[in-house]
Amino acid sequence: MACCACAGPGGGDEGRAPGAPTGVTAEAGSATSVHVMWNAVPAVSGYEVYRGPTKVADVPASAHMLDVTRLAPSTTYVFTVRARDAEGRLGPRSPRVRATTPAAVAADRTAPTRPGGTVGRAAGSRAAQLSWSASTDDREVVSYDVYQGGTKIHSVGGDQTATVVTGLRPGTRYSFTVRARDAADNLSPAGAPVRLTTAAGADEGQDTAPAEFRVTARRADGAYYLDLAWVPPRVDGVVTEYQIQVDGRPATSLVWGGTPPRDRASYSFYVGQDTGAGHRVRLRARLPDGTWGAFSAERTVTTGTGRG
Results as ranks from 00 to 15, higher is better:
residue 85 D to W: 04
residue 130 L to Y: 05
residue 288 P to V: 08
residue 72 A to M: 12
residue 12 G to S: 09
residue 264 R to M: 02
residue 179 R to Q: 12
residue 39 N to Q: 14
residue 125 S to M: 11
residue 234 R to P: 01
residue 301 V to L: 02
residue 75 T to K: 13
residue 260 P to M: 03
residue 209 A to G: 06
residue 301 V to E: 02
residue 281 V to D: 05
residue 130 L to K: 11
residue 173 R to Q: 10
residue 28 A to E: 05
residue 82 R to T: 15
residue 140 E to D: 08
residue 97 V to S: 10
residue 183 A to H: 01
residue 295 F to G: 07
residue 162 A to W: 00
residue 248 G to I: 05
residue 44 V to M: 02
residue 158 G to E: 02
residue 24 V to L: 14
residue 166 T to H: 10
residue 66 L to D: 06
residue 197 T to Y: 07
residue 295 F to I: 03
residue 184 A to I: 04
residue 308 G to L: 08
residue 257 G to P: 01
residue 186 N to H: 07
residue 185 D to R: 14
residue 125 S to G: 15
residue 90 L to H: 06
residue 240 T to A: 09
residue 250 P to F: 09
residue 270 Y to D: 08
residue 186 N to D: 10
residue 71 L to I: 08
residue 208 T to Y: 10
residue 40 A to V: 07
residue 176 F to Q: 05
residue 105 V to I: 13
residue 211 A to E: 06
residue 300 T to Q: 12
residue 297 A to H: 08
residue 220 A to N: 07
residue 91 G to V: 01
residue 152 K to R: 15
residue 209 A to C: 10
residue 80 T to I: 01
residue 187 L to Y: 01
residue 191 G to Q: 07
residue 97 V to P: 06
residue 91 G to C: 01
residue 290 G to C: 09
residue 36 V to G: 03
residue 265 A to N: 13
residue 289 D to E: 12
residue 246 V to R: 15
residue 220 A to V: 09
residue 97 V to W: 05
residue 202 A to D: 15
residue 213 F to S: 01
residue 114 R to E: 04
residue 98 R to I: 00
residue 146 V to C: 02
residue 164 V to M: 11
residue 88 G to R: 02
residue 49 V to G: 03
residue 187 L to I: 01
residue 179 R to F: 00
residue 221 D to T: 08
residue 261 P to G: 04
residue 40 A to M: 04
residue 249 R to G: 00
residue 266 S to V: 06
residue 109 R to E: 11
residue 47 Y to K: 10
residue 70 R to E: 12
residue 176 F to R: 11
residue 261 P to W: 02
residue 179 R to N: 02
residue 232 P to T: 12
residue 264 R to F: 00
residue 91 G to L: 00
residue 108 D to N: 13
residue 281 V to L: 00
residue 154 H to N: 12
residue 2 A to L: 14
residue 307 R to Y: 06
residue 219 R to N: 04
residue 51 R to S: 13
residue 104 A to L: 07
residue 227 D to N: 06
residue 136 T to A: 14
residue 238 V to M: 08
residue 18 P to F: 03
